[in-house]
């Protein structure tokens, strides 16, 4: 029950979701702990991305309840509470037209933090470069810098290390560990078992849209 949850950030109860007729997500009970790193893993098509999108507020389930910090989110308007407190980074992040700076500051109020973010994410040298021309790893870093700039408490990442080089992996892992140390709630979907075991406070295994195991 959510009431247990001074330590919980988001709780899902009896959630069902389908894109077509087939149910792709069926979660009886899931609590995401605040200020912890939760890693979701499982085979392709197991429902990891759909679960992340529901946890971020991007998708609204057909059945079930979502609780966020004690508030039950029942409709699209209330869903914005969750959207306003989290940032979701796609597996292949969307890169806006224009410069790296424009991409990083998109959604931010003011540009005060831009310089610091560009330096932290090793993007300062690309500041005025066209973002769409950069490599997959740099684009992932841009998306993470953009998400970090939003200063939301919950950060949801879909395969943040997929298709990127080892150098960028090191930078991203380091930044995620810093964010975790700063008390952010990180929810990460990944296939990378080493990364999962290295980062996670809790690991959730999914199969066919259901949680089959949860390890703390």
């Amino acid at each position: 029950m959510w009431g247990s949850g001074m330590h919980n950030s988001i709780t899902l109860k009896n959630i069902k979701f389908s894109y077509t007729a087939e149910t792709v997500l069926d979660i009886a009970d899931l609590s995401i702990e605040r200020n912890r790193v939760t890693v979701i893993t499982g085979p392709n098509g197991s429902g990891k991305t759909t679960l992340l999108k529901i946890l971020s507020g991007l998708l609204l389930p057909e059945l079930g309840e979502i609780f966020f910090e004690g508030t039950v989110l029942l409709n699209r308007r209330k869903r914005k509470i969750l959207l306003g407190n989290s940032t979701y980074v796609h597996q292949t992040p969307y890169i806006f037209s224009g410069s790296v700076k424009r991409n990083v500051t998109m959604g931010m109020k003011g540009e005060n933090k831009c310089k610091g973010l560009l330096e932290a994410f090793d993007l300062a040298k690309y500041r005025n470069s066209r973002a769409s021309k950069l490599s997959g790893g740099e684009k992932q870093k841009i998306a993470l810098a953009r998400a970090a700039g939003m200063e939301r408490n919950i950060l949801l990442l879909d395969e943040p290390l997929a298709h990127i080089d080892s150098e960028s992996k090191v930078v991203i892992e380091k930044i995620l560990k810093t964010m975790s140390a700063e008390g952010k709630t990180l929810i990460i979907a990944t296939h990378d078992h080493n990364f999962a075991s290295d980062m996670a406070d809790t690991i959730i295994y999914m199969e066919n849209g259901k949680i089959v195991r949860s390890i703390k």
């Binding site: 991007l58 992040p93 998109m106 959604g107 998400a147 939003m150």
Partner: peptide, 9 residues
């Protein structure tokens, strides 16, 4: 979705 998650509505 990216715009939604960035609070651009």
């Amino acid at each position: 979705e990216t715009l939604d998650t960035l609070g651009i509505w």
